[in-house]
Nucleic acid binder design. Structure first.
Length: 300
DNA sequence: CGACTTTGACCTGCGC
DNA sequence: GCGCAGGTCAAAGTCG
């Protein structure tokens, strides 16, 4: 995956100067810290607005449908919060960044086995393999990563997630893999703690939810956020959102410095980023890529 | 008993 | 072609 992540997170409007050839990992470089806790929950963040506009604007982007990546619809976008059943969103959590990549494929792995078993043993692996090879290069759902300062791994986002795997990978001791439990929803997310700063949780969403936030969760979001925050899956609260976001961005300067090291989590990111916080909101390009696909599809 | 987590095995893509 | 790394599966265990 390294590659896609590279792509994914590699957009860096701010420091072009580069990272000495190292590629391994610039993964979270662009992530910026902001503190959503002061104004909204993840759920709200993702669902608070049902239009791309809101978020887009929030990030200072010009709303434009044309920016929606082609492959996006395949899946889902990701928003989410961790829904887990239990862990409440940490109060002190502060989200941070984002990034994404468009890609499309998706049902690749999963279907792999499932399909195989369904189709019959014969056509199995080899065939599947061949098939795959024939197909064009595997593509992935757009991804969006958040860096959050939190004590709990799972950020409450209103959705329910089922953990389906955990495995140590380079630069990340034990990332956990979660899938949205809603039927037909292929959204996945990876949750990992920052290698250098364990207090930082990096959550990467992949795909778009094709359903609304479940309201009757066991771990019920209702208990975790002020009602004002829960209102929305549908309601558009666009106006306040952007403002908050911007605000948030302003406060990020400090965060950038403070968490600079965090950005290195995945590797050898140079300090440039930290040294140039002024580019603060810079990830236009990046956001443009991700935002659209970021929202859940509001399909009836 | 159903939903969820844990965890080792397996699969796939990619770089060398 | 080989080996590594990332990602997923699925059986078994845990929890409510």
């Amino acid at each position: 995956m390294s590659e896609e992540f590279k792509d994914l997170y590699y957009h860096q409007p701010f420091h072009d100067d580069d990272r000495n050839g190292e590629n391994s990992s610039t993964y979270t470089q662009n992530l910026q810290m902001f503190d959503p806790s002061s104004y909204m929950s993840f759920g709200e963040f993702f669902h608070g607005s049902n239009s791309h506009d809101t978020l887009t604007r929030a990030f200072g982007l010009t709303p434009s449908t044309s920016e929606v990546p082609a492959g996006v619809d395949g899946g889902g976008g990701g928003g989410d919060l961790v829904g887990g059943s239990e862990t409440p969103a940490t109060p002190n959590s502060s989200i941070s960044s984002s990034s994404t990549e468009a890609a499309g494929d998706e049902d690749s792995n999963k279907s792999k086995k499932e399909k195989e078993s369904v189709e019959g043993e014969n056509s199995s692996k080899k065939e599947a393999k061949a098939k795959k090879k024939g197909e064009k290069k595997k593509q992935r759902e757009p991804r969006f990563a958040f860096k959050t300062k939190s004590e709990v791994d799972q950020l409450e986002d209103g959705y329910r997630w089922r953990k389906y795997g955990q495995k140590a990978v380079k630069n990340s001791p034990y990332p956990s893999y979660y899938r949205c439990t809603t039927q037909k929803c292929l959204v996945k997310k990876r949750v990992e703690r920052s290698y250098q700063d364990p207090s930082i949780v990096i959550t990467t969403y992949e795909g778009q939810h094709n359903h609304l936030v479940p309201t009757t969760l066991r771990g019920n979001v209702a208990g975790m956020f002020p009602s004002s925050m829960l209102t929305p899956p549908m309601p558009l609260q666009g106006t306040s959102f952007p403002a908050n976001l911007l605000q948030l961005h302003q406060m990020t300067n400090d965060h950038l410095y403070n968490y600079g090291s965090v950005n290195n989590v995945y590797g050898q990111q140079n300090l440039t980023t930290l040294e140039q916080p002024q580019t603060q909101f810079p990830e236009y390009g990046l956001l443009q890529d991700m935002i659209p696909s970021f929202f859940p599809k509001q399909e009836p």
